[in-house]
Simulated scan of single mutants.
Amino acid sequence: MNAPAKPLTAVIADDERLLREQLKTRLQAAWPDLQIIGEARDGNEALARADELRPDVMFLDIRMPGMTGIEAAREILALPGWQGEIVFVTAYDEYAVSAFEHGALDYLLKPVEPERLVQTAQRVKSRLARRAVPPPPTDEVALDSLLAKLSQLQQGITPRPSEPLRWIQATTGSTTKLIDVKDVLFFKSDEKYTRVQTRDQEAFIRTPIRELLPQLDPQQFWQIHRSAVVNLGAIAAVTRDDTGRQRVHIREHAEVLEVSRSFAHLFRAS
């Protein structure tokens, strides 16, 4: 006699408690055998729950404080041994939602409709049942492309300008200075500001990393973490510890920058 199938598990991530409760209630009706084993209030908690609990499916709100749902998805998909599925919960209009129809991920449009939840349950169950079969190489490419498009939609990013940013207007104490972008060693998120680090000074701007990155020359600056962008010419070395974590060492500066799993491929030996 075959043993009964193990119930599937899920984690719900949304910064609004009432929306988490609403989704949980409707999931119980549409997918009664699904076990909700955790909740998260933001992207950072979602990543922690995914790593700790290893659910079969993550329901991620796209707009969350700190780390967005899209940023959290990138980190979750890069977790070693991750085999779960991700369902985005979004308030976007039909144009943005149509991007999910590639089949790599599913979506739920707020407010969540019970009939749509039933379709989502069927789709996720089907994908989980086939997850032991290696996907074709194009799936990974399509997923990366989808996440990039969603990131642009969520953040309102415009296409990269033809001329990269040349000067940074930044504040040092009570003084505003113009800093040549070529002199910047790295940019790093610092609470409400982005730190602009040169060899002899640090300054601060209010532009977040996600808005700054499209303005920078991609041949000169690489994002290595959701909170850090480094000047390639300023890299002295990249080291790897016993856990596989990579760290970037900066020329003529003591700070060491961590490389997140999502960007580890940038420094992978060929």
Rank of each mutant, 00 (worst) to 15 (best):
M1L: 08
N2D: 14
N2H: 13
A5R: 10
K6C: 10
P7E: 04
D14R: 03
D14H: 06
D15P: 11
R17E: 10
L18H: 15
E21K: 12
K24F: 06
T25L: 15
T25A: 15
L27S: 01
Q28V: 02
P32W: 10
Q35H: 13
I37T: 07
R41E: 07
N44F: 08
A46D: 07
A48H: 15
D51T: 06
D51W: 00
R54Q: 11
P55Y: 07
D56K: 07
D56I: 11
V57A: 09
R63L: 04
G66F: 14
M67E: 00
A72K: 01
A73N: 04
I76S: 01
P80R: 01
P80S: 04
G81L: 10
W82E: 11
E85V: 03
I86L: 02
F88L: 01
Y92H: 14
Y95E: 06
G103M: 08
A104T: 15
D106R: 08
Y107S: 06
L108E: 10
L109H: 12
L109R: 15
P114R: 06
E115S: 12
V118D: 09
A121V: 04
A121H: 02
Q122G: 08
R123S: 11
S126K: 12
R127A: 03
P135F: 04
P135M: 03
P136W: 01
T138W: 13
T138G: 00
L143S: 08
L147M: 09
Q155K: 02
I157V: 04
T158F: 02
P159I: 07
P161M: 11
P161S: 09
E163Q: 15
R166H: 06
R166F: 00
R166Q: 14
I168Y: 01
A170W: 10
T172I: 11
G173E: 14
S174T: 10
K177T: 12
L178W: 12
L178H: 14
I179T: 06
F186L: 05
F187V: 08
S189L: 02
D190L: 10
E191A: 13
K192N: 15
T194L: 01
V196A: 05
Q201M: 10
A203W: 03
F204I: 09
F204D: 04
R206K: 15
P208L: 04
R210P: 00
P214L: 01
L216A: 07
F221Y: 05
H225S: 15
R226D: 04
S227Y: 09
V229A: 00
L232D: 07
A234F: 12
V238S: 08
D241V: 14
T243I: 03
G244R: 03
Q246W: 04
A254W: 03
E255L: 03
V259L: 14
L266A: 01
L266C: 03
A269C: 05
